[in-house]
Amino acid sequence: MKSSPVHPFDLLAVDGLLTEEEREIRRTVRTMGERELRPYVAEWFESGEIPARELARKLGELGVLGMHLEGYGCAGTSAVSYGLACLELEAVDSGLRSLVSVQGSLAMYAMWQHGSEEQKREWLPGMAAGEKIGCFGLTEPDAGSDPGAMRTAAKRDGSDWVLNGTKMWITNGSVADVAVVWARTDDGVRGFVVPTDSPGFSAPEIKRKLSLRASVTSELVLEDVRLPAGAMLPGARGLSGPLGCLNEARFGIVFGSLGAARDCLETAISYARDRTVFGRSLASYQLTQQKLADMALELGKGMLLALHLGRLKDAGELSAEQVSVGKLNNVREAIEIARQCRTVLGANGVTLEYPVMRHANNLESVLTYEGTSEVHTLVVGKALTGEAAFR
């Protein structure tokens, strides 16, 4: 007997947990994504190129750049609303959500939280509007999961700072107008606001990627980059500064990864209902239904976890280890959903005619950046045992 299908999120009545404002923000971002991003994203992925500046302006007009920050042209929305926007953007492509995350939760947040009033006024309004693009330089070729091993250094020269070093895997790097760069100083790790037209600064783009192809990824090379004293972020000292920014970005991933998973599952369900195998729809077979049911269960659980963490963040009660729980679980389950959905689509699943393999490839990067699954496992392990297993 056939009946009307239920959307995976409807199984757990997720919409009833959202406010009307949150649902409206979600609808607005989804509509823009479907109309102005999805029709082109497969082509961007295939070519490995995106119209970054045009996209930044569109996303600025939409109001999602730094949307969870207050003032300076930012919307000041709730954390849950920001999470839902990340979910809808990543339902189109992880690279597009990465552009928004790096702009708002890393570069803008670093200035908003740790910057001087002059730095905020100079950069944040233009970045919120998408007229200026930012990037965040922490990871280095030999310092990924261990940022304390960074080699980039800033030395005093009179009242100026002189920066030397290399950063790696930097989203938005070669299209950015400003970079927030973290460097060793005699006073510990400090952050610097670096205009990308500064002499000695270059950002060669990283090519030949098999993941996040609809995203700009670059090196940052700093060769005797001279900055005035006012370029340093006054409110950040030590690794707590950049790590706090990373927690902001990780929170967006907790929601965003579910967007990729949802798009894969919606695609697989639609495909299974339409595909005829041995005279029956693929969706009518028990093995297919077991896959779909298991994936819907994990997707729903991930969404409930994301919403709970979002409510904690809005209440000012979200801890770093809780963010690690969210990132660890939701990305791990999202990539498994993408892989299982590919099996439902069979050979069609490996083409760009469907989004599933593109999402799966992207999630391989999401699994690694903003803290690998191994690192988040150890964060959770430390919280449970009180023992640090990093070294």
Rank of each mutant, 00 (worst) to 15 (best):
S4I: 13
L11K: 14
L17V: 00
T28C: 07
T28E: 15
M32N: 10
E34T: 04
A52K: 03
R53K: 13
R53V: 03
E54Y: 03
E70N: 10
S78P: 07
A79T: 10
L84K: 07
V92I: 15
S94T: 01
L96A: 08
R97Y: 05
S101G: 03
Y109T: 04
A110N: 08
E122C: 01
M127W: 12
E131L: 04
K132E: 09
L138W: 04
T139W: 03
A143N: 11
D146P: 01
G148C: 04
M150A: 00
R151L: 13
K155N: 11
G173A: 10
A176I: 12
V178S: 09
V178Q: 10
D187E: 15
F192A: 00
R208D: 15
V221H: 14
D224K: 15
D224N: 14
V225M: 12
M232H: 03
L233I: 00
P234I: 13
A236F: 07
R237Y: 07
P242N: 05
N247C: 06
N247D: 15
R250W: 02
A261D: 03
C264Q: 09
S270E: 15
R273A: 12
G279P: 12
R280Q: 12
Q289T: 09
K291T: 11
L292S: 05
L292P: 07
D294N: 08
D294R: 08
A296P: 04
L299M: 06
G302N: 07
G302W: 13
A306W: 11
G310V: 04
K313G: 02
S324T: 04
V325E: 15
V325P: 00
V325A: 12
L328K: 14
E333W: 15
A334K: 01
I337P: 02
Q340R: 14
G346M: 04
N362F: 01
V366R: 05
L367T: 08
T372Y: 13
T377R: 13
K382P: 02
K382Y: 03
G386A: 08
R391L: 13
